[in-house]
Simulated scan of single mutants.
Amino acid sequence: MEQHQHADALPDSAQRVANLLSELKHDKPVVMLSSAGRTSAEAAAGLGCSVAEIAKSIIFRRLSDDAPVLVIASGSNRVDEAKVAAQVGPLGKADAKFVREKTGYVIGGVCPIGHAVKPVMLLDQDLFRYDSVWAAAGHPHAVFNLTAQQLQAMTGAPVADVALVPVAPVESIPQAN
């Protein structure tokens, strides 16, 4: 497996993900990008794929119990907090300290698996439009490739509509006569 050949080249957090993927019998290696993939656009540019093929991990804080809520969304989608809250309960913002404590990862490198505290999860239905997607592998420069089906199998996350649908400006809506 390629993961073992590159083992000493990976930062500790990315190596932890590589080990988890190996345990899960995942056949794709963790790939290090030459520049950070902190945003979906940066990751897509580094990988030569579309922004929509980036499976971004967004962490929220559930207000009722302070639980981490992980939404794995297509990189081209903005997450609709109201849609997520309707499924998991009222949400608050998760700051960098909360993200690090609850996931074990830094913002920009939050992997969908291997969290310090098991998060409440939702998986964006739009990810299933693509043959494969790229997810963060525990470090802002580290990613791995998989299918949306594999992502669902690894996480057990329910598939949901989480995308914010852009509202058309008022002047572009046709007027009824």
Rank of each mutant, 00 (worst) to 15 (best):
V159Q: 10
V99M: 10
I54E: 10
L63N: 05
Q152Y: 09
V71L: 06
V162Q: 07
H6Q: 15
S172Q: 15
S57H: 11
V162P: 08
L33G: 01
N77V: 11
S13F: 05
V165Y: 03
G108W: 01
A96C: 02
A14Q: 12
A137M: 08
P158S: 13
D80Q: 12
T103L: 10
C111M: 12
I58Y: 12
V71Q: 09
C111T: 08
T155A: 11
P158Q: 13
I59C: 04
Q152N: 13
D95M: 11
V133N: 01
R61L: 07
V120E: 05
Q149Y: 09
A96L: 02
N77P: 12
G156R: 09
H115E: 02
P119C: 10
A67M: 14
R61S: 10
D124C: 08
V106D: 10
S22G: 09
A96G: 03
L47M: 00
S22F: 08
W134K: 05
P11A: 12
K118M: 07
G156D: 04
L122T: 03
L24V: 02
E23V: 06
S132M: 02
Q15E: 14
L123E: 00
L24P: 01
L33N: 03
R78V: 15
A45Y: 00
H4P: 03
K56I: 07
N19V: 11
V69Q: 02
G114P: 06
P11C: 08
K56Y: 04
G109L: 05
A176E: 12
T103F: 08
G75I: 08
K93Y: 09
P11F: 10
A14C: 12
S22E: 14
K102T: 15
A52V: 10
D66W: 00
F60M: 05
P158W: 03
F98W: 13
T103V: 09
P166T: 13
K28A: 06
V99K: 12
D126W: 01
D124M: 05
I113C: 06
S57F: 03
V133L: 06
G48W: 06
H139W: 04
L91V: 12
M32Y: 00
Q152E: 13
V88E: 06
V84F: 14
R129G: 02
G109Q: 07
S57R: 06
M154S: 05
Q15A: 15
V51W: 04
R16S: 10
P166M: 11
L10R: 04
A43Y: 03
A148G: 04
C49P: 00
P174I: 05
E101K: 15
L10S: 09
F98V: 06
G92C: 08
A96Q: 14
V69C: 05
I58W: 06
I72V: 15
A136P: 03
A86H: 13
A142Y: 01
D66I: 00
L127A: 05
I107D: 02
D161R: 14
S74K: 09
L123F: 00
A157F: 03
D95S: 07
Q5D: 04
T147V: 07
T103A: 04
S22K: 15
C49Y: 00
A9W: 10
V69S: 11
L20S: 11
G108F: 03
G92L: 10
A116Y: 02
H4A: 13
K97D: 15
V133P: 04
V170T: 13
V167H: 07
K97V: 14
V110R: 01
D131T: 08
Q3F: 08
V31M: 04
L24S: 04
K56L: 07
F98H: 12
K102V: 09
A116V: 11
S74L: 08
Q152L: 04
G48K: 10
